[in-house]
Design a protein around this nucleic acid. Structure first.
Lengths: 306, 306
DNA sequence: TACGCTGATACCCGGCGGGTATCACGGCTT
DNA sequence: AAGCCGTGATACCCGCCGGGTATCAGCGTA
């Protein structure tokens, strides 16, 4: 009586996102009448009205809002089941590690080196994604493990190993008066009138209100800093930002950022276990001496070049 | 091409649990041939062999193990979507709070009192469950919010508010020499030869190996302590254990237990928000003076009666 | 060797998902 | 004011697929 099929959830999500039966049907590749029927049947089964049909489209009811959120999560879980099962059936599957582009690449390289040194190490494939997308990739099974940053990323629902703790720096335009400081506080960088904080899109693609410029990628943001339009506060090791027009100034009271290795709980493949072991070994030497690691800007060495 | 329906996942879970097509079909209320067909189709779609068919049943492949775990999670998510949507459509729905029977009942009463005092408070329905079941009830939508205990319960994937921190006591038979101590250490209670720790069933109903008695409910455990067969270490406020044949002795080096209110992230109904507010108010007075709270054994007052 | 138990196969039927054609209704335009 | 357009709803048909029964095929065992 109350077994809902994933097809019905996919249909509902399409309608809830488009708020228009015709467009949703086109997106799904079916005609509009069967879609209307399916949504009606879903409403009848749940005993709940999900959409208020209007002459120019439809709007979600409160219950519809709930189902939209829950259905997305459920569909993610189903997609994850499929992806993970497929990979589990593939004997020489690589481990997929997802991380933000441009962040922690030194640490990532050390992790990959350490893992490659392990005997019988599984190959690791690196998948780069947009800011904040790692959790989603992990949840829907596109990746096995992620590099994430506390407190920035939402770590709820994942097992984690802390890899590295570091302080944060403000990246400001070299020509700006703030660049002359050798240390700053959060208060000093929070509301600089001519350097408003950039705004990132929400999950639905819209932007929050505010004075700052709208950005969608990290390189846009880097460019905006170089142009003197904005500033940002990031972990000290994110050296990708270090353009000639940038200056990094330590922010003394910004919360420390912890780089963590995160993975969905319960899924202990041998390959993942091996990577976690490598990561734990890395953690034991969080601050390598320069002699041990001659690369400049190595994570753990919070030296900020100005 | 790769859209898997929940029906197929339910079918697979049944087969994977029974390891026998005939019994699984009977449990599902269908005949065996369609079930075989469905599993074959699922294997073909995933491109992965899930079961090794044997003459006397079937055994899971590695990929099958993965899918069993993932499919259970996915089906939980779908069930949660249905349940939460149904409740969201019901205007005067009560908030369902799930907790372990016998634990934290004083704190729970204070929470319910505080919530009832709120203007326009939503009714709260209390659901009692077995040890360790709260997370599952929360995940599959049978409950909106849970009282759980760190570090005992798995809080991964939930938002939480800490309510109360307390130390732990050992509950030992009154006739046992350990009862004469006025304080104990973990080392002293860990491997007492004549009081082996009881064993709880795993999720699949089997018991881990060990010398301790097998228990399934808390009252069985209480009875076994009274009979001098075992001991246990629990938070000081779990007064349900306090039988005449029991003696509670503080365990000085046991980790502190934090009672937390936990709920699935993202689901902010007004009723839930109101309860979380009540809980946060409670947290601000974690150790009420006796004058403020004349009830004996109130949580926060770690007085241990012997 | 025959029986029994397992899952696989063959075949049929009915329901349901999907398609096209059309309706009902309200807002907009002229 | 009247017609048109765009919305979702309804009516009806068809083909596929899920489910049923009957039966087969392999292997262990009595």
């Amino acid at each position: 009586m109350d077994d809902v099929e994933t097809r019905e959830l996919r249909y509902f999500v399409a309608v809830a996102e488009e708020l228009h039966f015709g467009r949703a049907a086109a997106r799904l590749g079916i005609a509009q009448p069967p879609l209307s029927r399916a949504i009606h049947r879903l409403e009848r089964r749940l005993g709940v009205r999900l959409l208020d049909r209007d002459r120019r489209g439809a709007v979600l009811t409160a219950a519809g809002e709930v189902l939209l959120r829950e259905a997305r999560a459920a569909l993610d879980a189903v997609a994850a089941a499929v992806r993970r099962t497929r990979r589990a059936g593939n004997p020489d599957r690589p481990l997929v590690l997802v991380t933000k582009a441009g962040a922690s690449h030194e640490l990532l390289r050390r992790l990959l080196d350490a893992q490659a040194g392990e005997p019988g190490a599984a190959p690791v494939e690196v998948l780069l994604c947009e800011v904040g997308e790692q959790a989603h990739r992990l949840r829907d099974g596109q990746a096995d493990v992620a590099l994430m940053h506390r407190p920035y990323d939402d770590l709820a629902g994942f097992d984690t190993v802390d890899l590295h703790v570091e302080s944060q720096v403000a990246i400001v335009p070299a020509a700006h008066p703030l660049a002359a400081h050798d240390r700053l506080t959060l208060a000093e960088v929070s509301h600089v009138p001519d350097l408003p904080i950039a705004r990132w899109p929400r999950l639905d693609g819209t932007y929050p209100e505010g004075p700052g410029p709208e950005v969608r990628t990290q390189s846009q943001l880097a460019q905006l800093v170089a142009l003197g339009k904005t500033l940002l506060v990031i972990p000290a090791s994110s050296r990708a930002w270090q353009w000639p027009e940038h200056v990094a100034v330590p922010v003394v009271d910004a919360p420390e950022v912890t780089t963590v290795l995160a993975w969905p709980p319960g899924g202990y493949s041998p390959a993942l276990a091996s990577l976690v072991r490598s990561a734990a070994g890395l953690r034991d030497t969080p601050r390598p001496l320069p002699a041990e690691d001659p690369r400049p800007g190595s994570p753990g060495a919070p030296a900020v070049s100005r």
